[in-house]
């Protein structure tokens, strides 16, 4: 589907605009798939990480195993994890997502625990003194104060995931990674450059948007912003 404009090219320039203008549909489909894979991974990652983060924060017994397990998942190289899943879940969207979600967990849980741990003890004492019950204290005091760290974790997890999505090109998904892989297979630089530039741009755009979200939902922290 991509094989045009490369046969007989004496010298392959870094970018061939005619290819780009002729493949807008292919490029935008890859971009959309990249965003989909990333969004689902981070949202599912967060759904798993919040309860595990709370558990790791509250219970010393669970903290060790939770960090060990997610740490091991984080350490396993992406290509190894994806290909270890293929015999069971095939060359599918599911395989990609299981891998991608696994990599978000350590980052998200780690930041949730750091955020919750950094809530000053006096603040929690005061909340209890004002009659907050444990659940209300968690929802209205602890979690809001941990938001900067949690969103910070989401930023790192999102940017990391956007990079890892490119590797899923090898199992037939990949979003913009499929352009990079195509560039490698055909020794044709244009899709490689387009895929790389868009992937980096997407990472920066996602990072800035999450930073914006963080500013909007934590009005009290403005003025002493943490980067």
């Amino acid at each position: 589907m991509l094989a045009t404009g490369v046969v007989g090219a004496a010298e392959d320039p870094w970018i061939r605009w005619s290819w780009v203008s002729g493949h807008v549909d292919v490029i935008s489909a890859a971009l959309v798939q990249h965003i989909e894979l990333t969004l689902i991974a981070v949202v599912v990652g967060l759904l798993i990480a919040v309860p595990l983060g709370l558990l790791a924060w509250r219970s010393r017994v669970f903290r060790g195993p939770i960090f060990s397990l997610t740490g091991i998942l984080y350490t396993i190289p992406s290509l190894a994890l994806f290909s270890a899943l293929v015999p069971f879940t095939g060359f599918t969207f599911l395989t990609s997502e299981i891998g991608l979600v696994s990599y978000t967990l350590l980052i998200l849980i780690r930041n949730i625990v750091v955020g919750l741990t950094s809530v000053p003890e006096e603040v929690r004492e005061a909340a209890r003194g004002m009659g907050y019950r444990p659940l209300a204290e968690l929802v209205r005091i602890d979690l809001p104060l941990a938001i900067p760290a949690i969103v910070g974790g989401m930023r790192i997890a999102t940017v990391t995931t956007i990079g890892l999505v490119t590797v899923t090109a090898l199992i037939g998904e990949g979003g913009l990674g499929s352009l990079i892989y195509d560039g490698l297979l055909r020794d044709f630089k244009t899709p490689l450059v387009v895929g790389t530039v868009l992937s980096v741009a997407l990472a920066f755009a996602a990072d800035l948007s999450l930073a914006g979200v963080q500013r909007v939902i934590t009005p009290w922290s403005r003025g002493r912003a943490t980067a």
Partner: peptide, 8 residues
Amino acid sequence: GRAVPSFA
């Protein structure tokens, strides 16, 4: 560095 995919 994190934003640039290692595969790329």
